[in-house]
Design a protein around this nucleic acid. Structure first.
Lengths: 251, 251
DNA sequence: CGGGAACTTGATCTCGGTCAATATTGGTGG
DNA sequence: CCACCAATATTGACCGAGATCAAGTTCCCG
């Protein structure tokens, strides 16, 4: 089963080749994560929704959307990793709220019809764009879809609760351990080294730490023989049990 | 318009007088907050949903539900304040994820049919209980209700993002200032002193701080002439503008 | 191979945690 | 109504995790 994108919305930095890419998307890609939203999306009322979807691409470190911008579109990621961030104060403090990947929806608008967060492409990203208004309209017509969206949001809310306790209650080494476990799960491949994708600065913004502290926490985990680093971006997990213990605040 | 509770579900610590209380609930109380959920709840499919609702009460510091317990019921708070918390590690660390009050739904189960969080009555609490299964069923039938739930969840998710940036990126004084602003909004009455309801320990668990640090932050805000304390639980806001500046990380 | 960005490491400082000693408050019973 | 007691809050002294400042080092990428 294939989703056929129609009328791609113009994106900043969109290339001609992006527009010329095969006009079909493997359905399997959609079902990578957030199956709850994906399944009804693809099975029911598909024709309606597909008519409003367009495929878009972003290069590494490009914003998909910015906080406070009028929310014109939602995105369902089909490739790559997106960080959703919020700026704090006016002295450059930033908090990465969530990391999204293939199958996830991102760019839910806040009540006032504007993006609450800034979406940043951590890797090159591809995503299906849905008009926000049409998305809403579809929700109002298709009950299975509405339920699936509610389930998805509920799941995110639980993730947010975990994030909050990580940032609020764990020590730096525990937070970084937790991050590594999360990134392994994100890769949906529990063998081989874990690719982090984020810089130390970004990991810090995700965990509420300074980049130097993140670096030192990696060193500590190395010294504990829990992980090994092969390049700054590649983590080999040596002691999975210990890692998840540390990650959950049990030493 | 009134909601008539039928067949109250047995609650631990429920008193006879609670069961004997007037079998009607003023609708106005329902619409205090989370109007999106409340309105369709009360206007559409009311008969169905009311048939599964029961009124319950809890005393101060009693749990409404506990994390990992099978989720039998959702609650819509009709009176009082509830803290939703999660335990971290096994050394007594605790994170209060959210503070809910009149009109809010709480006790959404996590995917596995168990409560993700522990709900704690901060004040004496009254709430309408809905069977989880019936709630789901109702969502599957009533599209307006499903949309309203999705909107409510979306709103909470945005709140969670703010919470995350508060705990991850603000200094202790800024966090406490933010807490005071939140509690003023919660009281839905922007005049007169703000009642905190939470102990210093609980405020600490909410903000990711120690109780001593919370106490010192209150003193700092007093010294800055931004607030005054009349009793540990009563805050008088002296400089609202300054307070909200501090609360958002701008000194 | 050169240059810049990202990472690591070290030295020092500071905010918040920890431990401990009062002070205050609120609830209970005489 | 008041005295007492336990729970909570405040304050102080000290410590330590993490922030800050400052070099170096490594790793890409052109």
């Amino acid at each position: 089963m294939y989703v056929q994108p129609i009328k791609p919305i113009a994106a900043q930095g969109v290339t001609l080749s992006a527009l010329l890419q095969p006009a079909v998307l493997p359905y399997d890609r959609c079902s990578g994560r957030s199956l709850g939203v994906c399944a009804p999306l693809c099975n029911h009322g598909l024709a309606t929704l597909v008519a409003i979807a367009g495929q878009r691409r972003w290069a590494e470190r490009q914003p998909l959307y910015r906080s406070d911008e009028p929310a014109q579109a939602f995105y369902k990621i089909t490739k790559g990793i997106v960080a959703e961030a919020i700026d704090v104060g006016d002295d450059g403090r930033r908090q990465i709220v969530a990391i999204r990947t293939v199958g996830d929806l991102c760019g839910y608008p806040s009540p006032k019809g504007r993006y609450a967060l800034t979406g940043l492409a951590i890797t090159p990203v591809e995503a299906c764009a849905f008009g926000a208004a049409q998305f809403d309209a579809h929700m109002g017509r298709n009950i299975e879809f509405a339920s699936a969206v509610a389930d998805d949001l509920s799941e995110r809310l639980n993730q947010a609760a975990v994030r909050l306790s990580v940032v609020g209650r764990l020590w730096s080494v525990e937070r970084v351990a937790h991050f590594i476990v999360e990134m392994r799960r994100l890769a949906s491949r529990d063998t081989g080294p874990v690719e982090l994708h984020l810089t130390r600065q970004e990991i810090g913004d995700y965990l509420g730490l300074r980049l130097e502290t993140v670096s030192r926490a990696f060193r500590d985990l190395k010294d504990m023989r829990v992980i090994a680093l092969t390049g700054a971006d590649m983590v080999v997990i040596l002691d999975r049990k210990r890692l998840s213990e540390v990650a959950s605040g049990r030493f």
